[in-house]
């Protein structure tokens, strides 16, 4: 199926791969923000996950261990943020920005010896005859396991927030931490757990970039994906299912502009490279204008420090 020099099936198949890092990071940040913490360090956690995952995979030869390493590194960055903002009550915005700068610098340092190295390859999940189904097989059954994991995580996050008691407590902490504290819930502990989850997912997203999507290590390779993840959370009104749409939109336009470049369209490369960022933001803004509840859906305690006044 080829339209205007672009193979639609390849496009959709590529879209899922291109979206996965942002989807993972956005899902993690969504959970953290639902608990009332604004962590602007997503970009920093992603790039740290990217380099740590890459280094682990190259040194052990196991991509799976690489992803574990990336997630742990992201979670470690998040715990640094948690100690500063939850224990020492530093300003969340400033700390988040610092975390991003720190992550970018740290990853460049760690990554130096790994430049130009090829990581061990991650194979596609063997679906057997399923992947031979025309059209659907290429779109749905031709990916690596992390793509399916990311989709599963979105579903699990959605169900966790909506149906479980732990999810209810997490939302309550994000709505009104004073009330949650008065009822005897441990606000700081809940927020640290949510932050760690958010960091792990951002790290996982970063590792996906360096191990599968690119796959190699280059300095600053996240290229703003963490910021896109943050924007997606806001415009998705803090709902996982909408974050999925936002992430796939971003991935879709990324895939499309790459295909347009490959097809040799006479559009300046810079405009094409810019397109995913601009169009994602524009579409999400329009969406949140249509759903006027956009900003009001924010967790009421988002970004506010909690201190139990004994």
């Amino acid at each position: 199926m080829i339209i205007g020099g672009i193979d639609i099936i390849t496009l959709i198949s590529m879209l899922m791969v291109a979206s996965t890092p942002v989807l993972l990071a956005a899902t993690g940040e969504l959970v953290a923000e639902k608990s009332g913490v604004l962590n602007l360090g997503v970009e920093g956690m992603m790039i740290t996950g990217a380099v740590a995952g890459f280094a682990t995979a190259v040194s052990t030869g196991s991509p799976v261990l690489g992803f574990v390493g990336g997630a742990l590194a992201g979670a470690a960055m998040a715990m640094l943020f948690a100690i500063l903002t939850q224990v020492f009550l530093s300003n969340q915005t400033a700390t988040g920005l610092a975390l991003t700068l720190f992550g970018l610098g740290l990853s460049a340092l760690i990554g130096k010896p790994f430049e130009g190295v090829r990581p061990p390859a991650t194979g596609k999940v063997p679906f057997g005859p399923l992947s031979d189904i025309p059209v659907l097989g290429r779109i749905l059954f031709s990916h690596d396991w992390v793509v399916y994991l990311s989709l599963l995580l979105v579903a699990v996050t959605w169900a966790f927030l909506k149906f479980t008691r732990a999810g209810l407590i997490l939302r309550a902490v994000g709505e009104n931490h004073d009330a949650a504290h008065a009822l005897g819930y441990r606000v700081i502990a809940v927020r640290c757990a949510a932050l760690a989850f958010g960091g792990a997912l951002a790290g996982l997203g970063g590792a996906y970039l360096s191990l599968i999507r690119v796959p190699q290590w280059t300095e600053g390779m996240t290229a703003g994906a963490g910021w896109i993840a943050l924007a997606i959370v806001v415009f998705a009104s803090w709902r996982p299912e909408r974050a999925l749409i936002g992430a796939y939109l971003f991935g879709g336009i990324t895939a499309l502009q790459l295909q347009l470049q490959a097809a040799g369209y006479a559009i300046p490369v810079h405009l094409l490279s810019m397109a995913p960022y601009v169009l994602t933001i524009v579409v999400l803004v329009l969406l949140s204008v249509v759903h006027r509840r956009g900003v009001q859906a924010a967790p009421a305690a988002l970004g506010r420090s909690f201190h139990a006044a004994s």
Binding site: L168, I169, R171, A172, E175, A179, L183, Y185, A300
Partner: peptide
């Protein structure tokens, strides 16, 4: 409580469950 320990964005049943 004097200042209600309630969560505005949650429904009545969820608020009760939290307590």
């Amino acid at each position: 409580f004097q200042h209600f320990s309630l969560f505005e964005a949650l429904n009545v049943a969820e608020n009760v469950a939290l307590g």
